[in-house]
Design a protein around this nucleic acid. Structure first.
Lengths: 120, 120
DNA sequence: CTACGACCTCACGTTGACGTCAGAGGCAAG
DNA sequence: CTTGCCTCTGACGTCAACGTGAGGTCGTAG
């Protein structure tokens, strides 16, 4: 498939896909005229990249990680890196839960008729 | 207290505190010579701001939200905004959990001696 | 008085993940 | 053959939350 097809299938912009290739995250073959061609597997590849971006990983980190995924092997350094990222995500989840609860408190505090303030 | 004191108490940079003021998030009185002065309450204010930033809210959103917190009242629009942000955070938490599990899968898949690959 | 750190106001620099525009070529339909 | 959409390669623009200097003031300890 061509880049536009991959873009619409993944809902990722053409520009982003070219950027992924530039960052070494997404490979493509080229047609005779130089147009990028992708296998069906590229769809899942892009989804994985999106998930990792969504988790807050940088292009550089993802670029270091994907070869491990492809080869299904990891070096001690990459394992350490992965575990560190997982821990960071866990911390971020915990912070988000706190922030969400805080936001709920705010919603509650500002939505109620707020009697303790009305009558003081 | 002066800005440096507030900065060290909150572990937020002086530059950031001035930026918060610039964005309308943090008020200060001024000494005769123009230096910023803060009440003790500013510490909690900064912590709240940090939490909201941590939750992914923008300066603009926080600026719209803080007056509601102060007045302990909310308009229908702000309530809607707050609920939307909470939902966004919930979505983000869910995505992070998925990403974390994905990362754990990768760690497992690349850490194991990987028999099903070694022997195929 | 003088040194020295904390503070002030501009105002430009940084970073990542793209958006966007320019100018040129590619490709199936009519 | 030409219309019209897709694709290509640069290359500059964007946006947020600050970082980082420049150049000057404040305040207090010695």
């Amino acid at each position: 498939m061509r880049i536009g097809d991959l873009a619409s299938m993944t809902r990722v912009s053409v520009r982003a896909l070219r950027y992924y290739e530039e960052q070494g995250l997404l490979a493509s073959t080229r047609s005779e005229s130089g147009q990028r061609l992708y296998e069906n597997a590229a769809v899942n590849r892009v989804r994985l990249i999106q998930q990792l971006y969504g988790a807050g990983l940088s292009s550089k980190t993802i670029a270091e990680l994907l070869p491990c995924v492809d080869a299904k092997v990891s070096t001690p350094e990459s394992r350490e890196r992965l575990a560190a990222e997982r821990d960071r995500i866990n911390t971020q989840i915990a912070e988000l839960i706190i922030a969400r609860d805080r936001l709920n408190d705010i919603i509650d505090a500002t939505s109620r008729p707020n009697p303790e303030c009305d009558y003081v």
